[in-house]
């Protein structure tokens, strides 16, 4: 389901390698930027949204009708490992094979950034990096700062919304539940168009500001944090929180001392997902950038369009390195929150 929506809404890959095939998402972009035909772009967006929303609603109301509680206050036993060799070996090999292909594809990117011209001249060079840093420094810094601002907001907001959805009963709860997750189903291109249409004219004019990019990042990545928060919370016995409340803790204390540490893995997941997604976002923000702010992914796309694959690879490599450093930092930071993560047994 998710894969389908992601594919139909994918923008980056078809533009870079699509060749003669035209996908809906690319079409929207071309109409909006190439022909300045906002109406046509909006119409195409509606088609995209319709297809995605239909699938989303289908999945929400037909596939999610089960409920479960697996983490009770009793805490669970260790999981059982499959020991039979005839089962574990073939599956192991298959996974290994798939992993090697994926790793190899990624390894080509940094490799490509160190050679003069991929496919023709394989001699070692640092030119691409020199070029990348000289002209792309601002893009690198902007992207990292925007992502670093939006990730924590997304993570915390996501957990709070998840907590409210699962644990509290209030008017409009199911509406919040629905709208918070709809962001997954709506393709990024459509969000981008929507933001331009909404914030290009008064009362709120945000087009071209950093705020609109950060807001887009948050809106785009928060559903995943909420989803994983909701899933984790649904597996935690509510009487654990009731016990804390019975011992004198108010709602805020219960959330910070009991709920948050228990859903820390989901929190960390939401944080990392948000950061990565923001760093690599393309479809939503391609409409929102301005001369003031450049984003890494868009720089990469520009380089690909003019055929400078080496520089594009160099940018991509820098992007990957930043993401990995950020993940490490987030792991450490979240580890400092409350207690060590070994103490949490959530499976």
């Amino acid at each position: 389901m998710l894969v389908f929506i992601k594919s139909i809404a994918d923008f980056g890959n078809p533009t870079a390698i699509g060749g003669g095939f035209n996908t809906l998402a690319v079409q929207v972009y071309q109409q909006a930027i190439g022909n300045y035909n906002m109406a046509e772009a909006a119409a195409l967006s509606i088609i995209l949204v319709d297809i995605s929303l239909l699938l989303f609603i289908f999945s929400k109301y037909f596939l999610e009708k089960k409920s479960y509680v697996t983490v009770t206050g009793k805490t669970a036993k260790e999981r059982v490992l499959i020991d039979e060799k005839h089962i574990s070996l073939p599956i192991g090999f298959f996974c290994l094979f798939a992993s090697i292909i994926i790793v190899a594809l990624y390894a080509l990117v940094p490799l490509g950034s160190f050679v003069k011209l991929w496919g023709i001249n394989y001699s070692f060079t640092l030119d691409h990096y020199r070029y990348a840093f000289s002209m792309g420094k601002k893009a690198i810094i902007d992207t990292t700062i925007f992502s670093a601002i939006s990730a924590p907001i997304t993570g915390i907001l996501g957990m709070i919304i998840a907590y409210l959805i699962v644990r509290k009963r209030f008017l409009g709860r199911s509406f919040i539940d629905f709208t918070s997750v709809v962001g997954i189903a709506v393709p990024g291109t459509v969000i981008g168009i929507g933001y331009i249409l909404a914030f290009n004219s008064p009362p709120i004019v945000l087009t071209g500001t950093a705020a609109i990019i950060i807001i887009a990042f948050i809106a785009r990545t928060i559903p995943m944090g909420i989803k994983s928060g909701v899933n984790t919370l649904q597996q935690i016995d509510p009487s654990i929180e009731e016990a804390a409340q019975g011992l004198g803790a108010n709602s805020f204390k219960v959330f910070t001392t009991i709920t948050l540490p228990m859903i820390k893995p989901a929190f960390l997941g939401g944080l990392i997902y948000s950061f990565i997604k923001s760093m690599t976002a393309l479809s939503a923000v391609i409409f929102l950038i301005s001369a003031r702010f450049r984003l890494l992914t868009i720089v990469v796309l520009d380089q690909v369009e003019v055929g400078r694959f080496g520089t594009a690879s160099a940018f991509s490599t820098i992007l990957i390195i930043i993401v990995y450093i950020a993940i490490l930092i987030m792991y450490k930071a979240v580890g400092l929150l409350g207690v060590s993560k070994d103490n949490i047994k959530l499976t």
Partner: peptide, 19 residues
């Protein structure tokens, strides 16, 4: 609210804090 009452409760599922 429960946190203001001079009452403590033992739950069926024990409800210990796993962390």
């Amino acid at each position: 609210p429960p946190n203001k009452r001079d009452i403590a409760m033992v739950f069926q599922s024990y409800a210990l804090f796993p962390h």
